[in-house]
Design a protein around this nucleic acid. Structure first.
Length: 645
RNA sequence: GCCAACUUGGCUCAGUGGUAGAGCAGUGCUUUCGUAAAGCACAGGUCCCGGGUUCGAAUCCCGGAGUUGGCUCCA
């Protein structure tokens, strides 16, 4: 007889030993919800292990992140068993739970193809339905090695396992090396879906054998699984490559080269508006604009250390009058040389210098992705040169600017403070000063942040911002880094009060990242339904009959007067067809005009996401639209349900 | 870069060895219509590129390019 004490003090009595299923069943009944595993002294354990404990425990249920992980990891064992039934002789390398699901890396004697996935899913469902218990078995290291002498992956896993006892989990015939814990039985896994397959290397090492990775996911209920699949569909619908084609925003052309973006007029005008906003905000905040050349002598990259450390990312050198030149992979050296063109006093600092600087980097072909990962891109780069006691104020200013711009685009965000990595340059005092300055600003602003220990760059700590878009997805966003390296290498100095030369503190930062990646992300964030100020075509005037064409031209003239991007659709099509085309083109404002409106000096307003809003006096409507653009207001309705979350 | 799949008209796609198709878009004509597709006609293709097998290749084989999904990578 033993007791399990629940956190509320309630005791559940058991007669040990009991079959696991009964333990789980009893706990679940007493708890009123499904128990998957238990936490004893903060350690995750199988429910079976409780049999040896008379302790206060908390139960892990599938509505917690831990519970989901345990459920999904157990799912990977079921996936493995299903694969083994269908493909005897398959070896299993590694099968963890990951965000949104789980996978198993397998080495199958015959290739598994996409057509096999539904079969695997069916087999999994059968195993789950059979609801056999997961049973933990323990072997000594030597016994384990003997058992798996013919399986190089298991041997490797045993080699890597800690301690002398190696645990296995069995469900029926199938047994797999595993640390656990697991759900009590396969029936607790819920609704499963086999998603996809892909190649992956054993331990991510490209010199090792390529394995087949099968992705699957599971949710406690069919409804939750369905909601997840719906969200994936929604993400697919928003894919910037698809919308980019629909709206004729950009393209890549094989004859130009992979990863090189051609901005079509509709995409270019969005970029123009974003850049204009960016410049306006920078100039307001005391930044100054720079321009630097797209090629430079190799000397500058030798000096910066980039050629040595990141030469693989740079394009080959070209010979100009006998000297090697390179295409610019980053903007910093140019900005530093502008600084060093003169001797500067502490009285002049800080300098806030910025450039929409286009750079080219050799990204491996397999990593290119639409506008989000490209080989030529324009960074919204800035370098701030300041004294140590100006650092906090400058960081604060950067965060102000970042916050304002992200709000304007309707993003929420999370902050991460990345501290000193194992391999780094600079003194302890430098790192302490810099890290403290970053942290102090985050605290002063009451900005919630997480510490990414050791996540800084070798030359200094940084604050990374992750954007959360309308679908709740996270994107790499603004970043602010301190740099101890380049000021040393380039002797970037100012003359202090003491008439001595001191090294400047140099801050690198971007707010948008690159125009390509940011606008690619914006397309998905808004699902193509841009705010009025960004929409390629802002207003389309649709005539019901030819009798309204003259009136349409009058409205067009007034719209142009206000600087709106507009178009008159005066073709002989029916009004329904014109509206359909306007909606498909995602034009935010459609003005329908016929004889009625012409008489009254009105226009029937139809707004994207809101529909038909009825007739308005043109004289009132147009200034309102102009104001909406001037204030850079977000779309009338959030682009996604979770936008406010 | 690695593994796999894919590449047919501007777009989305059908076509598995017998000489290329649909819908949408485009052009012309007709229609003048009230909130998501009017009708008719016309035009449009080196079937990604190169090589091979075959009497014959969009289709089969080899090589290359590009794209996609992953892996690795993203200062």
């Amino acid at each position: 007889m033993f007791n399990i004490t629940l956190p509320d003090g309630k005791k559940i009595p058991f007669d040990a030993p009991l079959p696991l299923g009964e333990v789980a069943g009893k706990i679940s009944r007493d708890l009123g919800k499904k128990a998957l595993a238990a936490k004893v002294d903060g350690q995750l354990r199988d429910l079976t292990s409780l049999i040896d404990h008379d302790a206060a425990v908390t139960f892990v249920t599938p509505d917690t992140p831990e519970g989901l992980d345990i459920m999904r990891h157990s799912g990977s064992h079921v996936l493995a068993e299903a694969i083994l039934t269908l493909f005897p002789g398959t070896k299993f390398a590694y099968g963890p739970a990951v965000e949104d699901g789980f996978y198993y890396d397998v080495d199958a004697p015959n290739p598994i193809t996409a057509e096999d996935l539904p079969k695997i899913e069916k087999a999994m469902q059968k195993i789950i339905k059979a609801n056999r218990p997961f049973v933990r078995r323990e072997l000594s290291r030597a016994e384990a090695k003997a058992k798996y002498a013919a399986d190089e992956y298991k041997l490797d896993n045993i080699e890597r396992a800690e301690g002398d006892i190696i645990s296995f989990y069995e469900q029926g015939e199938f047994s797999d090396l595993c640390r656990g814990p697991h759900v009590p039985s396969a029936g607790k896994i819920g609704a499963v879906k086999v998603m996809s397959l892909a190649g992956a290397y054993w331990h991510g090492d490209a010199t090792k054998k390529q394995l087949t990775r099968i992705y699957a996911t599971s949710f406690p209920t069919q409804e939750e699984l369905q909601a997840h699949l719906t969200k994936l569909e929604e993400a697919k619908r928003r894919d910037h490559r698809v919308i980019g084609k629909q709206m004729d925003l950009f393209s890549t052309e094989p004859d130009v080269g992979p990863g090189l973006i051609l901005w079509h007029p509709n995409g270019a005008v969005i970029r123009h508006e974003v850049e204009a906003f960016w410049k306006e905000e920078h100039l307001k905040r005391g930044y100054q604009l720079l321009y630097t050349p797209h090629i430079a002598s190799e000397e500058i990259y030798k000096r910066s250390g980039h050629l040595e450390n990141y030469g693989d990312m740079m394009y080959n050198s070209m010979d100009i009058d006998g000297s090697p030149y390179r295409v610019k992979p980053m903007n910093c050296p140019g900005h530093i040389l502008i600084y060093n063109a003169n001797v500067h006093s502490y009285r002049e600092l800080p300098f806030r210098w910025c450039e929409l600087g286009t750079v080219y980097r050799y990204e491996p072909s397999g990593t290119l992705h639409g506008m989000l990962r490209v080989r030529g891109f324009t960074q919204d780069d800035s370098h701030i040169f300041c004294t140590p006691d100006q650092v906090e104020a400058e960081i604060n200013g950067i965060l102000d600017l970042m916050d304002h711009m992200m709000r304007t685009f309707g993003y929420t965000y999370k902050a991460f403070l990345a501290t000193r990595p194992a391999k780094s340059i600079g003194t302890d005092a430098q790192w302490e000063m810099a890290t403290n300055a970053l942290e102090a600003v985050l605290k002063r602003r009451n900005m919630p942040y997480e510490v990414d220990n050791g996540g800084g760059v070798f030359y200094g700590p940084k604050i990374d911002i992750k954007l959360v878009d309308a679908l709740g997805r996270e994107w790499q966003g603004p970043t602010t880094q301190l740099d101890f390296n380049l000021p040393e290498r380039f002797k970037v100095e100012y003359v202090g009060k003491d008439n001595e030369r001191h090294k400047v503190v140099m801050l690198h930062r971007t707010v948008l990242g690159s125009m390509e990646r940011f606008i690619g992300g914006l397309i998905e964030h808004f699902a193509g339904d841009f705010p009025l100020w960004l929409a390629p075509q802002q207003v389309r005037v649709l005539t019901v009959t030819d009798a309204a064409i003259d009136y349409g031209r009058e409205i067009m003239a007034k719209l142009r007067e206000l600087g709106l991007r507009c178009h008159l659709d005066d073709r002989g099509d029916k009004i329904g067809a014109k509206i359909r085309e306007g909606e498909l083109a995602r034009v935010p404002v459609l003005l329908v005009i016929g004889e009625k409106e012409k008489e009254a000096g009105e226009a029937a307003v139809r707004r994207r996401l809101l529909g038909d809003l009825g007739s308005r006096k043109v004289a009132e409507l147009l200034p309102e639209l102009a104001a909406e653009i001037r204030e850079r207001r977000l779309p009338p309705k959030p682009a996604g349900k979770t936008a406010e979350a």
